[in-house]
Computed example of a mutant assay.
Amino acid sequence: MKKLFICLFPLLAQGATAEQISNEQNFQVETLLPVLLIGILFYFLISLIKFALEYRLKNKMIEKGLTEHLSHNLFASNNKKDDAIKAAILLSGIGLGLLLSYFTAPLHIHSLAIMAFSIAGSYWAYFLYLKRSN
């Protein structure tokens, strides 16, 4: 409900009619809902496959003689600091790419190239961070 209000707030602030709001809402639902559903489906499938493969690998490691505690420690990702820094670097790169795309209007194929290079640069910066921290 909050997201709907946030999406409709600019229209309400401009004094939009009910018909304009309805058209805007239908456009957003028609475009975002399929993308959201496909994204959730892929996330679910990837999570399910990851869970199954990790389970099989843990069982094989236990069969070979590793303790369950050691196999659990191999798969545990407790490094929240690196996850937060990765998210910060990636979002900063996306923001920089969007900013550069905005200033180089009109939005065409070069905007996609700018975004691709900015995201790649973000991952490269994260790689360098991990390289220095180890």
Rank of each mutant, 00 (worst) to 15 (best):
F42H: 05
Y55I: 10
A105G: 07
G15S: 09
E63G: 04
F103D: 07
L96D: 01
K3S: 09
L91G: 04
L107Q: 15
I94W: 07
E54G: 08
Y126P: 03
E30D: 09
M115A: 11
E19N: 06
I109L: 04
L99E: 06
M115W: 08
K64V: 10
I94F: 08
P106K: 09
Y126H: 08
N134C: 00
Y126M: 04
S77I: 05
G121P: 01
N78D: 08
L128D: 06
N134S: 11
L36V: 08
K80A: 10
L100N: 02
I40P: 00
F127W: 15
L4G: 08
Y102G: 03
I62M: 11
P10D: 14
K131M: 09
S77H: 03
K2L: 15
A113P: 01
F117D: 08
L48V: 05
G95N: 00
H108Q: 12
L90I: 13
K3R: 12
L11V: 06
L32D: 13
K58T: 01
R132C: 02
G97V: 01
L107Y: 15
Y102L: 10
G15W: 04
G95I: 09
T104C: 01
K50G: 10
T67V: 09
S71M: 11
S47L: 13
I49D: 02
I40E: 04
L12W: 08
I89M: 08
A84L: 09
Q14K: 03
L96R: 04
I85S: 04
W124A: 14
K58G: 02
T31Y: 15
L8I: 15
G93V: 07
H108A: 13
L32G: 12
F9V: 04
R56Y: 02
A87M: 10
G39N: 04
A84F: 05
F9S: 12
A105S: 11
E24G: 03
L90M: 11
L96Y: 07
Y126N: 06
F27L: 08
L74I: 15
N134P: 02
S101M: 07
G95E: 03
L41V: 01
K64E: 11
A76D: 12
W124H: 07
R132P: 00
S22L: 12
L48D: 00
Q20A: 14
F9T: 10
A116V: 14
S111Q: 02
L8S: 14
V29T: 14
A120N: 11
F51R: 08
L48E: 03
G93C: 12
I40R: 00
W124P: 00
G15K: 12
